[in-house]
Design a binder for these strands. Sequence first.
RNA 1: GCCCACGUAGCUCAGUGGCAGAGCACUUCUUUGGUAAAGAAGAGGUCAUGGGUCCGAUUCCCAUCGUGGGCUCCA
Length: 630
Amino acid sequence: MTSASRPPILEYPVVWELLMAELDDEITSSDFLSRMRHTTAHVLAQAVKEMFPDARLGIGPVIEDGFYYDFDLPRPLTPDDLPALEARMARIVGENLPLTRFVEPREQARARCEAAGQPFKVQLIDDLPEDQEISFYQQGDFIDLCRGPHIEATGRIGAFKLMNIAGAYWRGSEKNPQMTRIYGTAWQKRSHLDAYLDRLEEARKRDHRVIGRQLKLFVIDDAVGPGLVLWTPAGAVVRQELQNFISHELRKQGYQQVFTPNIGRLELYKTSGHFPYYRDSQYPPIVDQEYLQKLAGENCSCGELSNRLEQGAVEGYLLKPMNCPHHIKIFDSQPHSYRDLPVRLAEFGTVYRWEQSGELNGMTRVRGFTQDDAHLFCTEEQVAQEIVGCLSLVKIIFGTLGMRDYRVRVGLRDPASDKYTGDPANWDKAEQACREAARSLGVPFTEEIGEAAFYGPKIDFVVKDVIGREWQLGTVQVDYNLPERFDLSYIGPDSKPHRPVMIHRAPFGSMERFCGVLIEHFAGAFPTWLAPEQVRLLPIADRHTPWCEDLKRRMVEAGFRATVDARSEKTGKKVAEGQVARVPYMLVVGDRDIEAGNVSVRHRERGDLGPRPVEQFLADLAAEVEGKAA
RNA sequence: GCCCACGUAGCUCAGUGGCAGAGCACUUCUUUGGUAAAGAAGAGGUCAUGGGUCCGAUUCCCAUCGUGGGCUCCA
């Protein structure tokens, strides 16, 4: 195989932005392009109206890389309909229809949409602010309520493609009717479209679900349950290394490790407020045997049991949806002086949440996951400094793994809402602390009003996966609520009890989601310190195998992960398979090497590095692993 | 949960209202070799599950489970 035709599995650009960065900026983000995409959406709507004269139109905005349009149609659309729509669109583009804009007074505009049988458009008009100008765009005989802007004529549309069909609720609310959404992409030139489609294809190859199967990192089995991840030996190595890494950092930062069980009494979660309030996103309670017998004695029917579960009027246990109540009980198990604070309790705590079935996604959205959780109990004055400490931890982790492509979101309260708990003065201080801590990170961040939890402001770390979807990883949240609900206190210098503040934080977020994102980040080619298999020894012929086995044993004893490929296959094949398995180092061993006490080193990316003394290779390897080189 | 699509060997995927297919992986044999894939043979299947239509269903219909994309929600 020539080098040109090798699979591009070992290119290193990470996640979506970098993949896309290879497309010219001019191609991806000009103003013309977004106007053109908007016009393409209108052309789609025109085509749909031709095909279904009764179609009712929703909205058709420009999105990243393209556009969509929502329709209420007389029958469901199937993928087979897309080519027909594309053909109509191509014809409309070929007709080069000019787009003209006109403005109408509200009542007239409203009447026009009503007459056209477009109730959704009427709703849009009704919701526009009083002083808003109401504009329409027309191409041919197709007229659409629209703010614009557009390009001047349909003929200037370049290359486009309808991508997929999806259901979407009108205005995003489950209570509203569901419409048919058609997604499309549009570019100035055919070559741009092709490049984009190629990129999509590449991205799919590094999807963590694909690589996870190839490299045997994890498996999700029906018989165990949807959204429940089984970490296979290779994946478990990656997770274990990450956990070791962070545990080491935690010790340095004064955290204490704890362990807590996977269930807790329902009462505990009633106190915390999680039950029955968040009942819909939890596995149903486990009713204990004695209580069940008591109910049977009362001739309690299934329906009645279900009602009582609804109301939270049962006794039993809950699979824990979060670790905080358990950690709170540890904190509360003894009195604390202000001198003890902050108390930092850490645990890789496994939690279970009932995600809707349609939401499950590989490792990134699951029903059981392990948070690298910790809860800090501190004084009001210590909050700012503790937030900074938490962020520095996140920064160390992201930095070590070479993840630079993330977004920081500071969630603040919405002053207009009264759903927030705690003293507004404390909120002000905590929000200011979050803001300043985020600023001190030196990475771009956005402040989002109304994104705070009801119990306190938070800082989230958000990354995009390989197909452009955003996932929240690390999080730091200030909490005024739980200390109140659990009546926590410490003794201050005035020898009176005071209320501590809690900080929840998880720098990885969940091990499952983080590893999923990490798999895509590295396209499965983990740095040596994380690689499930670090070194693979390749004996040239059977007579070299015992020597390789000895060396392997030495390496395993030294703490490395090494294997021998002793199959009677040609070296070329062993190398090929080692490359596909993304093993960082392959050591080819034949007569020449054994005689000289060498190994012939091949590196995953750097290729054949030639022979080198065993001792030197081992020393270099140790240094690389120790330094966590990315 | 809702909309659409999909479910065939461990993996990637062909295929058909009338005997179940390929490549890779696996096992055995030959081969003992120097950096991206040696040859041969063999084994491997309740065509997701349950029901229906039919002389006959992997194929058509219905339901269930699961997966994918999207919507919604996310302590």
